[in-house]
């Protein structure tokens, strides 16, 4: 008869693996990185001609070193910025002071009003990052809401929920995100 081998007590094994589990829980971070995506303009040759943009099409946003916001020459609060930007870009009242609207033929959408508006964002070296992100956030939100409105009207879905590539492209063509950042200078707001 074979000798009976002694059984190993496996009860403490779970304790060990629990220890490992807690160790990994503590050292690893679950948070996914989120942020606002932007594309920088390619470097300009010094003798490049300035792009011709009509003055009425430029939505001027400036932040000074005291984190004060100036929109179209007037002091404003960040909470107003989204609606102001949307109003300027979509220009529902056809105001000659706001951005030009051109009818363009876009596949899937047919003739669509396309705004020629460009947001020009200026900031000072002393502007805080927090304020800058808050402004960028509002501008992004303005474009996102415009896209959502168009997308819901045409396809019955929010822009982020669109699945078909041609639909996404059509909405992107109709409402391009045009935020231009000035070459860094010191933005001054004259009160």
């Amino acid at each position: 008869m074979a000798k009976k081998s002694p059984t190993i007590n496996g009860g403490s094994m779970s304790d060990i693996s629990f220890l490992l589990l807690t160790f990994f829980l503590l050292t690893s971070s679950m948070d996914t990185d989120t942020g606002i995506a932007r594309k920088l303009p390619p470097p300009l040759p010094p003798d490049a001609p300035k792009p011709e943009i009509h003055d009425r099409n430029v939505f001027k946003v400036a932040i000074n070193f005291r984190d004060e916001l100036q929109v179209q020459g007037k002091l404003a609060d960040v909470s107003q910025l989204r609606d102001m930007a949307k109003d300027f870009l979509a220009n529902p009242s056809n105001d000659p002071k706001k951005s030009e609207i051109v009818m363009e033929n876009i596949s899937l959408l047919g003739p669509t009003p396309v705004s020629k508006g460009v947001v020009s964002l200026k900031n000072d070296r002393g502007t805080s990052y927090e304020m800058y992100i808050a402004v960028q956030n509002e501008l992004t939100a303005a474009f996102r809401e415009l896209r959502d409105e168009l997308s819901e009207e045409k396809f019955g879905l929010k822009f982020a929920d669109l699945k078909r590539a041609d639909q996404i492209e059509a909405v992107q063509d109709a409402i391009p995100v045009s935020i231009s950042e000035a070459e860094p200078t010191n933005a001054a707001i004259n009160n």
Binding site: G35, R38, K39, L40
Partner: peptide, 18 residues
């Protein structure tokens, strides 16, 4: 911009109210 790394992402935390 000088080195042509143009795709950037400003890291920000998701929040309800800014």
């Amino acid at each position: 911009r000088k080195v042509n790394a143009l795709k950037i992402n400003y890291s920000a935390a998701k929040s309800k109210n800014v």
